[in-house]
Design a protein around this nucleic acid. Structure first.
Lengths: 131, 131
DNA sequence: GTTCGTGCAAACGGTTTGCAACAAT
DNA sequence: ATTGTTGCAAACCGTTTGCACGAAC
């Protein structure tokens, strides 16, 4: 297992202390965090970090393929540390987003939409947690 | 074919002149319009309408099931007059959103995610227009 | 010493809200 | 008379940007 600084360097990202702290917060999280949630977590270990740095860093990570950015619910974008193919389920009550295994759903013909080059796709499910 | 005022009344919406104008703009549009695009169109025939009224009206229409609200690309939410089930394709170059027929893609097992009641789902495709 | 990263504050764009005037019932 | 609707402006929230300081190569 590579250390975080190594991981960043592999992606062409200079591993500053702030960036490592952001990486630690967002990659460890089993959830999908908003930028402000990341800011909150990073500040626990790095109180003086600025909002702009967190936003810039998250965008950089997305650019470099370390994170995926999701815009599933209005207005809120969220960062997904799981870069493997998978689907998403949005809880309509809480707004929380859950991962759904790629193999759990079978999709046929999604790549063959006439007139388009489909680069990627996923199923977005909406519902609520069973009691 | 019901007139617009009748259509609104059927959904429990008082058909004021402004609301009818918004309905005319957004329901006719074959595309997915942002709130500001709707505002622009409505102002062609109703120049004095306010931004707040358009936003409130669009939200009301979504609440009453006349429109669907889509949040597929970061920050921009868009209104879809097509209330029939269908999928969506996002052009990564232009940001434009296209409808994909429900029957064009076959999805299996989407309703059977353990621990959840899935109320609705769709496939979201990303790609670019073929030349 | 030139490039790169940071922090701060201000700007920004889309959306919402508070309120007073007005129309409908 | 009560309720619902509009318009305006201001507030709001998440995000981006400009700029000057400081660190890294």
């Amino acid at each position: 297992m590579a250390t975080l600084p190594e991981l960043l360097r592999e992606r062409g990202i200079q591993p500053s202390a702030q960036r490592v702290a952001v990486a630690a917060s967002v990659l460890d999280a089993g959830e999908h965090l908003s930028a402000d949630q990341v800011l909150g977590r990073v500040r626990e270990s790095f109180p003086q970090i600025s909002r702009a740095t967190v936003y810039n860093t998250l965008n950089l990570f997305v650019e470099k393929g370390l994170l995926r950015q999701l815009a599933l619910t209005g207005g809120h974008t969220v960062f997904d540390p799981n870069t493997a193919r998978h689907h998403h389920l949005v809880d309509e009550v809480t707004g929380r987003i859950y991962d759904v295994d790629w193999e759990a759903i079978h999709v046929a013909d999604a790549e063959h939409v006439p007139g388009f080059h489909v680069r990627d796709y996923q199923v977005v499910l909406r519902g609520r947690r069973a009691d």
